[in-house]
Design a binder for these strands. Structure first.
Length: 586
RNA sequence: GCGGUCUUAGUCUAGUUUGGUUAGGACAUCAGGUUCCCAACCUGACGACCCGGGUUCAAAUCCCGGAGACCGCACCA
């Protein structure tokens, strides 16, 4: 009935992807499993190229570390990080119309119980609160069944004997936080520094129904950037300060407005629209990434998250969104200012000290009272207990000890009565050379599969009734196609030589001799191969070939011997197509 | 999870209302022919009723269960 799906780009892109082996739904022979995809030969390469571009921008250009950790994570980690509490939502179902609601949302709306209060309640308490306040189904007025928790993390057991709970990580970030101390050592104990992890994450979505947009197992690229909150300046900001960002501000969203503001990175920081400089920097880099993946600036925007939309760890969050034909604006990356939330959680839960030491520019001299036990007196006075008394004294507040001795002539610690002669009280100078603090974190987090999808959708073009994937040349899964014009008269042999020459020079080459030349061009266009080299009869006499451009279908002619150098420069973006040889036919 | 619609070769689809011969087509793919640059043409080949159960002499078609897809609701920390 609804045939808008048939016409949508999403359907066309998904069909093409399936047909040409970019990706498809996994486990098809067993009926398929929702939320899992398999990338085929072309897709795997495209995804690698996209992830490498991300590395190029974030790892190479900004000197950020890359790491890799496991997807299965001991329960303690996600208990400490707050995920076990926050990935779980109490839900109720109406007995009459079977509609489902978040119990905490209902309580907030109809019983005036705030979400923070509701969060602390047990399932029974929620049930009671719903009944006591007479909350019924907003749709049909029916009553609710007992609330149930929905945990969207995958749970498993670690080891053969039940006991240790493990979770599939719903994000790669915690893998970085728990290794902070070692990573900080690798950074030679200097802030700021950043660590990125690109890997699989798992979320047991209730209903993943949007192809690559919502998966149960997906690839996430989490970048945690650690900095000193007292020195929040971003020394790389100047590189991007004139880049413009389109932002839909929270204040506008509250007014139900979709109006975006467009301002430079410099202004966004100056006007405190983006509170953390590093966050602004990464948002600019994220825009650059999407632009280089083929998404025009006007199809990108950032939206500021409203207070109740933000993740439990975040102080200020933006989502980077790209306009997708089927669903409108879709999140491709999240930019959260996580403050010191995560490291503090792991410090408390694990007992490990994750603070960093900062040396003051000038050491601070402090004079303070020190209480020093005089063992020569304590020994005879307390005998065997002397050691214990000394220890208690060292823990006591020196000011208090001194005051008590002066006022009362004694000081009581535990059951012991300490006299003035038992201690030496003096003013002591100490030099404080630095302090310890927990670093703050800004986190850009990309969904690799979503980047893949938008790159594919934005590459999708129809030209003269033919489909072509107009990938930016540096992410194309195959770089060059080599075609003998005819499969006879030795053209195929010559073409194979050229293929070999190019492959050995490091290019991703595909050879195709099946069907008419037009058909092969069409096949190549659909796979998004930017350049086609055709070997014709002229090649046999003068050693030149034609090079065809995927997007314009123009051709130039060049000698075979120049190809490796020309093509490498072309793929590095140092040459344009017209520079590759002399133009043929217009 | 709930409700609705749906599932036929690599892809798109006809056929399901009213059960009945060998499930038809297009494109793609492969082999051969033809072809001096944009899905041409000729010959041939390969290839499918989502899974399980039931009703029936007979099931792609009807019934039940399951899986998956799409749409709406809810969910997406």
């Amino acid at each position: 009935m609804d045939d808008s799906g048939k016409e949508s780009k999403f359907t066309a892109v998904n069909e093409l992807a399936k047909r040409r082996g970019f990706f498809w739904n996994s486990y098809e022979i067993y009926g398929g499993a929702g939320g899992f995809v398999t990338y085929g030969p072309l897709g795997t390469r495209l995804k690698q190229n996209i992830e490498n571009k991300l590395r190029e921008l974030f790892v190479k250009q900004t000197g950020i570390f890359e790491m890799e950790s496991s997807a299965i994570t001991p329960g303690k980690v996600f208990e400490a990080s707050g995920h076990v509490d926050h990935f779980k939502e109490p839900m109720v179902e109406c007995v009459k119309c079977n509609k489902r609601f978040r119990a905490d949302h209902l309580l907030e709306e109809y019983a005036k119980i705030s979400s923070t209060e509701a969060e602390k309640m047990s399932l029974n308490e929620i049930h009671e609160a719903l009944e006591k306040n007479g909350v019924t189904c907003p749709d049909c007025g029916g009553t609710f069944n007992a609330p149930q928790q929905f945990l969207t993390m995958f749970v498993t057991t670690i080891g053969p004997y039940a006991g240790a709970t493990g979770y599939g990580r719903p994000e790669a970030a915690q893998g970085i936080f728990v290794e902070f101390n070692r990573l900080y050592a690798m950074a030679r104990e200097k802030l700021p520094f950043g660590v990125i992890q690109i890997g699989h994450a798992l979320r047991n979505e209730i209903s993943p129904r949007q192809g690559l947009i919502r998966l149960r197992e997906f690839t996430i690229a989490d970048l945690e950037f650690f900095f000193d909150p007292e020195e929040p300046q971003c020394h790389l900001l100047r590189q991007v300060e004139n880049e413009t960002l389109r932002i839909l501000l929270a204040e506008n969203r509250l007014k139900d407005s979709e109006e975006t503001v467009e301002l430079t990175v410099k202004d966004a920081v100056a006007k405190r629209i983006i509170r953390a400089e590093w966050q602004a920097f990464f948002m600019a880099m994220a825009k650059k990434l999407l632009t280089e993946l083929g998404v025009p600036a006007e199809k990108q925007r950032f939206i500021e998250k409203l207070p109740w939309e933000k993740a439990h760890y975040s102080s200020q969050s933006f989502d980077q969104e790209v306009y997708v034909d089927r669903w409108g604006w879709v999140e491709v990356s999240g930019h959260a200012y996580r403050t010191d939330y995560d490291l503090t959680c792991h410090m408390k839960a694990s007992g490990a000290d994750m603070r960093v030491y900062k040396e003051y520019a000038t050491p601070v001299e402090k004079e303070q009272l020190a209480v020093k036990p005089v063992m020569a007196k304590l020994g005879p006075a307390f005998k065997k207990e002397a050691g214990k008394v000394a220890e208690l004294l060292s823990k006591a507040d020196p000011e208090e000890v001194a005051a008590s001795l002066k006022k009362n002539g004694h000081y009581t610690v535990g059951n012991y009565r300490v006299l003035p002669e038992h201690v030496d009280i003096s003013l002591q100078k100490t030099v404080v050379r630095g302090s310890r603090f927990v670093p703050h974190v800004v986190e850009p987090s990309f969904g690799s599969d979503r980047l893949f999808y938008v790159a594919l959708e934005y590459a999708y073009r129809v030209k003269d009734g033919r489909v072509l994937l107009s990938f930016p040349r540096d992410i194309a899964p195959v770089q060059v196609g080599v075609y003998p014009l005819m499969s006879k008269d030795g053209l195929a042999d010559k073409a194979n030589e050229v293929r070999k020459l190019l492959a050995e020079s490091g290019l991703m080459v595909e050879f195709d001799e099946a069907g008419s030349i037009g058909r092969r061009y069409a096949r190549a266009d659909e796979a998004g191969i930017p350049l086609g080299i055709t070997i014709d009869y002229e090649t046999l006499s003068d050693g030149t070939v034609t090079i065809r451009d995927r997007d314009s279908w123009q051709q130039v002619r060049s000698p075979i011997k120049d190809l490796p150098e020309l093509l490498h420069k072309y793929f590095q973006g140092k040459l344009d197509f017209e520079d590759l040889g002399t133009l043929l036919r217009v």
